[in-house]
């Protein structure tokens, strides 16, 4: 899986070189609602609850506090 993902990431970097927008076309992308984590605490609480109830966690980033709840 690691190799495949690395390949996908590399292909994304190379393949996406032609994609994207000009700076003046960022009107929608610049909105708060289009940020990758638009609602910090919604995401934070969800991750915290599921961490204590399920066997999987992580994926969105590294860091964050530990918890004795799992």
């Amino acid at each position: 899986m690691i190799r495949i993902t690395t390949l996908i990431l590399l292909m994304t970097l190379v393949g996406c070189a032609g994609m994207g927008v000009e700076p003046w076309e960022r009107d929608l992308l610049a909105k708060d609602s289009m940020q990758l984590t638009p609602d910090y605490f919604d995401n934070f609480y969800d991750e915290h609850i599921y961490f204590s109830k399920e066997a999987s966690n992580g994926g969105q980033g590294v860091g964050g506090g530990g918890c004795g709840c799992n």
């Binding site: 990431l9 996406c16 994609m19 994207g20 076309e25 590294v62």
Partner: peptide, 26 residues
């Protein structure tokens, strides 16, 4: 002890679309 390594890419596709792909090894 918990060690996490992540590599990821975010890509603007067009004026309305943005994608993110992350790989994490923990």
């Amino acid at each position: 002890t918990i060690t996490d390594f992540m590599i990821g890419v975010t890509q603007v596709i067009d004026r309305k679309t943005i994608l993110q792909l992350n790989l994490t090894l923990g």
